Amino acid sequence: MAGLISVIDCISQASMEIGISQRPISTAVGSSDQDISQMQALLSTVADEVLLEQPYRVTLGDGIWVFSSDMEPKEKITSDSDLIGFDARLAIDGLKYRFLKAKGLEFGEEMRDFLTRLNKLGARANAVVLDLDADEGRVQ
Rank of each mutant, 00 (worst) to 15 (best):
T78R: 15
G137K: 15
I84G: 00
I92T: 04
I25C: 03
K101C: 06
A47M: 13
K101M: 09
S69V: 07
G61E: 03
R98T: 08
I8D: 02
V128P: 06
R138G: 02
V129A: 14
A88E: 04
G137F: 14
I8H: 00
G104Y: 07
M1F: 01
G63N: 03
M39C: 03
G63T: 05
V29W: 07
I8E: 01
V58D: 15
E106D: 11
D62F: 04
T27D: 14
A91G: 08
E17N: 07
D87Y: 08
G61L: 02
V129D: 10
R124G: 09
I8R: 06
T116R: 14
G94Y: 04
I5Y: 00
T45Q: 09
K103H: 07
S68V: 03
S6Q: 06
I20Q: 05
A127T: 15
E106N: 12
G19M: 09
R112A: 12
W65R: 01
D93F: 13
S32N: 11
D131F: 12
P24Y: 11
L118T: 01
F67R: 00
A41M: 10
A127Q: 13
A41P: 08
D35Q: 07
Q13P: 06
S26P: 08
D133V: 15
Q13G: 06
N119G: 09
T116C: 12
L60K: 04
S79T: 15
L132W: 15
D113C: 13
G19A: 08
L42A: 06
W65D: 00
S37M: 07
A91V: 08
K120L: 12
A47I: 10
S26V: 09
N119L: 14
A91L: 07
I11A: 08
S26T: 09
Y56T: 01
F86T: 03
D70V: 14
L90Y: 00
E110V: 03
V58E: 14
I5C: 02
I84A: 03
M39P: 00
R138D: 08
P24H: 13
N126I: 11
G108Q: 12
Q54T: 11
L95T: 05
D135Y: 14
A102T: 13
L115H: 07
V29P: 01
S12A: 07
D131Q: 14
S44P: 12
S68T: 15
V29I: 12
D82V: 01
L100W: 06
R57I: 10
Q40I: 10
W65V: 01
D93W: 07
S21P: 08
M39G: 03
D87W: 03
L83F: 01
Q34L: 13
R112I: 08
T78L: 12
A28P: 02
L95I: 02
W65E: 02
P55Q: 05
I20N: 05
D133I: 14
R117C: 10
E136H: 11
D113T: 11
K96D: 06
T78W: 07
K96N: 04
D33M: 05
L105W: 10
T78F: 10
N126A: 12
R112K: 15
D35P: 08
K76E: 13
S31R: 03
Y97F: 12
M71Y: 13
D70N: 11
M39E: 01
D135P: 07
I5W: 02
V7H: 00
V7A: 02
A123T: 12
C10E: 02
V128M: 09
K74T: 02
D87A: 11
L51E: 05
Q40N: 14
S68C: 13
S21V: 10
W65M: 02
L95Q: 04
T59Q: 10
R112G: 05
S32W: 06
